[in-house]
């Protein structure tokens, strides 16, 4: 279980990284923290000709708050973001969800941008990005563009990122006044890939429920402030629309059950916070 051979590039600037990526084409892979890519390299599921290491780029290690956005440089590690003292006020959903990402040891190295670029359908950070109506800042040697989360995730491990682009930053909406958030996750063990992960945003006139681990990408749905049977019906319709697949850990039926039951619970969590 050893990686296949590859050339290794460690650019000193983003511009150099983009030039290298443009030259490497589809045979080049980007590595930031490597907590998803390295296992796939070790198993030879991924066999790039060139590996471009973004982890040392200072340009990608900034966290900024401006204009209603929390902008996280792609190479900021999950634990660095989690340790940010103001995170719970800036993005309470992230503060609640990040401890569910892998383990302490993998969060020490795994990056926010890497998790988004990897696009595991069960992953928490992509879920939060969808839940918070965030954006992904993509940059190529030619241009910079911003893709909303809802359009970024296309399928399992598949995103709108073009082969010559890097994820430069990930932008989460800051906590909205009058909004409350909830996060719940059901995994087999602590730190496992979620069977189903759920994020709720509740505002005065709106409920937004986002679900990971059921469809092939994190998916959100917005409702007015439904209650009781109407909410049950909405959750049931959402569960069926998400579909879900059977795997060795859970049935599609079970995943839909979690959408219905934990969906209601996570919405209630947020509502409780909203009206103490």
């Amino acid at each position: 279980m050893k990686p296949a051979p590859f050339d290794y590039l460690r650019p000193a600037t983003v511009a150099d990284a983009l030039a290298a990526l443009a030259a490497g084409g589809d045979d080049a892979r980007l590595i930031a923290g490597g907590q998803s890519l390295m296992p796939m390299l070790n198993m030879r599921l991924v066999t790039p000709r060139t590996l471009i290491d973004l982890s040392a780029l200072p340009e990608l290690r900034r966290v900024e708050v401006a204009d209603g956005w929390l902008t996280v440089g792609a190479a900021v590690t999950q634990n660095e973001l989690l340790a940010r003292p103001t995170l719970a006020t800036e993005a309470p959903l992230l503060a609640a969800a990040l401890p569910w990402v892998g383990h302490f040891q993998t969060r020490n190295r795994g990056t926010v941008g890497g998790s988004v670029a990897h696009a595991d359908p069960s992953a928490e950070i992509p879920l939060c990005l969808v839940a918070l109506e965030g954006e992904v800042v993509l940059r190529s040697a030619r241009k910079r563009r911003t893709v909303p989360a809802s359009g970024f995730f296309i399928g399992p491990l598949t995103t709108a990122r073009a082969a010559d682009e890097i994820v430069e930053a990930v932008r989460f909406r800051l906590r909205k006044p009058g909004a409350a958030y909830g996060f719940r996750e059901m995994g087999m063990r602590h730190g496992d890939f979620a069977i189903t992960a759920l994020a709720a945003t509740v505002e005065a006139d709106r409920i937004r429920l986002s679900v990971g681990g059921v469809a092939d990408r994190p998916t959100a749905r917005d409702w007015p402030r439904l209650e009781g049977a109407a909410l049950d019906e909405a959750l049931n319709a959402f569960a069926w629309d998400l579909g879900g697949d059977d795997d060795q850990h859970a049935t599609a039926t079970y995943r839909r059950t979690l959408v219905r039951r934990l969906g209601r619970a996570v919405i209630e969590d947020a509502q409780t916070e909203l009206t103490p």
Binding site: S122, G155, P156, D245, D247
Partner: peptide, 11 residues
């Protein structure tokens, strides 16, 4: 990769 086989096949 059992977790993602179905959705990968669909893709």
């Amino acid at each position: 990769g059992g977790r993602m086989l179905d959705s990968a096949a669909r893709l």
